[in-house]
Each structure stands twice: as structure tokens, then as C-alpha cells.
Design a protein around this nucleic acid. Structure first.
Length: 279
DNA sequence: AACCCACGCAACCGCGTTCTA
DNA sequence: GTAGAACGCGGTTGCGTGGGT
């Protein structure tokens, strides 16, 4: 309490992350694993506060993150989990391992809240069904469904950055100088100018197997389950998330059984609604 | 073509919780 | 047991972008 924010320190950079910074951060985490964020800026030479590094990693760079439009299934889960848990975005995110709490929060604030308000004002008695129906309808219309894993994001930004600035770097730190050579060798396909996803992923997992812990159990799982919403095990995500998560056994069961297929979804939704009404 | 506005998303900030010496 | 440091979460902000006029 009353502690000054770490980002007030002089010389700390704010604002959007550059591809360079992303690469440095990813390289470092690939080698040392996430955690001990305080040491990340000093060890990497990044002019960012530890908080910013952690946020960038968890919200954007972490592997297994699904980006792009939310599926009706995900949307339904968010709506009902929000009804059950409130604005516990981290807890909700633990049920959607491929989505970040920030993503879910943004999606709720920009889409779902409005939608729910609208349907509630339209007709309160039918609002619940309205939500589900409009969800499905909307998704068929909204088809920017190019989900990309974060590794793909990284590969793309690497590609762009490497083309733009072949070898030089403005933030020449000891760490960067040492690692960029190695990492680009790992990331870049020697035979093409592309950064094949498989190769990048392989590189990542190779680094992981050296000793990444905690979050990365989930990282591995979600990576291997890319494109699948199923949440397979409890050790899948942050410990905090699970500690904070109430024993929603029905939902867990539902999530385990349910895939992105729409079949049976509506029926399960109605069960969920009953459950949430009881609570 | 230029301007305005609304929207979406990435990042920041403040505070509560947890950890450690 | 306590204080300070680090971490994690939720709310909020600011900027880029696309659509409308």
C-alpha cells in the first residue's frame, strides 16, 4: 500500500512493444522460463518494468494463445461463467486456457456486455435465449476466424522485423548480442526466408524441456491442444487460477465433454442457466 | 479527399495478496 | 510476527483503425 509503481522509475520505457523487444523477451523466457520477472529487465537489458514484461508475455507472447474471434462455445462459456463468477477474469480464463484474461475482459466489455444489455432491454423474459441465438447468428456472420497461436504471431513479427532490419538492433545489449545470433538461427529456416510454424514450435519446446515450470505446464498442454477448447487437467494453468476457482464441477464436466461442436450445446447451456439461476 | 467518430485492443495503473528475509 | 518486495488481478486509458458523412 502506498508503494510507488515500479514503472515510475526513470528510464523505463512505456507504450507498445516493438518486435525487437518481443524477441528479446521470448528468447530470455525460452531459456530461463517465465517467472522471476524482476530479474527479466536487468538480465535482458529491456528498458521495461517487470510488470510490463510479465503482462506482455501472458497476454501476447505466451504460446498456445488463441487470437481472433470467439466461437459461440467460448462466448457462451464467458457469459455463463461471468454470471457465476462475476468479473473474475482470471478464473474465467482458467476455463479457456487458450484465451487470456485480458482478452476475455476486453471481449466482455466491448461485445458481450452491450449485447446482454440490449437483449435484456428488448425482452427480459426471453433475454437468455436471445443471447444464445444472437451469439450463434453473429458468429456465422463474423468470420474473421484466423486463429493464430502466439508462436505464429512471433514468427510473423520476426519475419517482418528481420526483413526490415536484417542484422542490426538499436538496443544492443550484451544479452541481445549473445542471443540474437542463436535465436535467429533457431527461428529461421535456413532454406527459406520463412519462419515455419513447426520449426518455431520445435524450438520453443526444446527450450521448454530444459526447465520451464509453472505456467508452462499449461503452455505445453494448450499448445498441443491448439484449436481445441477442451481443458484437460487441473494443472493446466496458473496455480492461482485454480485456487481462486470455485468447485464448479458441472461446468468442468461440461467443458471436458464439450468441444467446439455445437451439438448439444444449447441443452447444456440451459442446464448452466438453471445452475446460475440457483446461485 | 478530408474530417469525425466509434470501436477494439494492447498496455498501464492501482491495489490486494503472497512471499521472503 | 512483521515489514518490505514481488506478484497477480481487475479496472481503466490511450491509440490505431475502419466506417460514415
Amino acid at each position: 500500500m502506498g508503494r510507488p509503481p515500479c514503472c515510475d522509475k526513470i528510464g523505463i520505457k512505456k507504450g507498445p512493444w516493438t518486435p525487437e523487444e518481443d524477441i528479446i523477451l521470448v528468447s530470455y523466457i525460452q531459456e530461463h522460463g517465465p517467472g522471476n520477472w524482476r530479474s527479466v529487465p536487468t538480465n535482458t537489458g529491456l528498458l521495461r518494468c517487470s510488470k510490463s514484461c510479465r503482462l506482455r508475455w501472458t497476454n501476447y507472447l505466451r504460446p498456445g494463445i488463441k487470437r481472433g474471434n470467439f466461437t459461440p462455445h467460448e462466448e457462451g462459456m464467458i457469459i455463463h461463467l461471468q454470471a457465476l463468477l462475476g468479473n473474475k477474469w482470471a478464473s474465467i480464463a482458467s476455463y479457456l486456457p487458450q484465451r487470456t484474461d485480458n482478452d476475455i475482459k476486453n471481449y466482455w466489455n466491448t461485445h458481450l456486455k452491450k449485447k446482454l444489455n440490449k437483449s435484456e432491454s428488448d425482452e427480459r423474459s426471453r433475454s437468455e435465449n436471445m443471447v444464445l441465438q444472437t451469439s450463434a447468428t453473429r458468429n456465422t456472420v463474423n468470420h474473421r476466424s484466423t486463429y493464430a497461436s502466439s508462436t505464429e504471431n512471433i514468427s510473423r513479427l520476426l519475419e517482418g522485423w528481420m526483413r526490415a532490419s536484417p542484422k542490426t538492433s538499436t538496443t544492443t545489449t550484451t544479452f541481445l548480442e549473445q542471443k540474437m545470433q542463436n535465436r535467429t538461427n533457431n527461428f529461421i529456416d535456413h532454406h527459406t526466408d520463412q519462419f515455419p510454424y513447426e520449426q518455431l514450435q520445435g524450438s520453443w519446446e526444446e527450450g521448454h524441456s530444459k526447465g520451464i515450470n509453472g505456467d508452462d505446464q499449461g503452455v505445453k498442454n494448450s499448445e498441443s491442444n491448439n484449436g481445441d477448447d477442451v481443458h484437460h487437467e487441473d494443472g493446466d494453468d496458473d496455480d492461482d487460477h485454480h485456487n481462486a476457482t470455485p468447485p464448479l464441477t458441472f461446468i468442468e464436466k461440461w467443458l471436458l465433454e464439450e468441444t467446439s461442436t455445437a451439438g448439444g450445446q444449447m441443452e447444456e447451456m440451459s442446464h448452466l442457466m438453471e445452475l446460475s439461476n440457483m446461485i
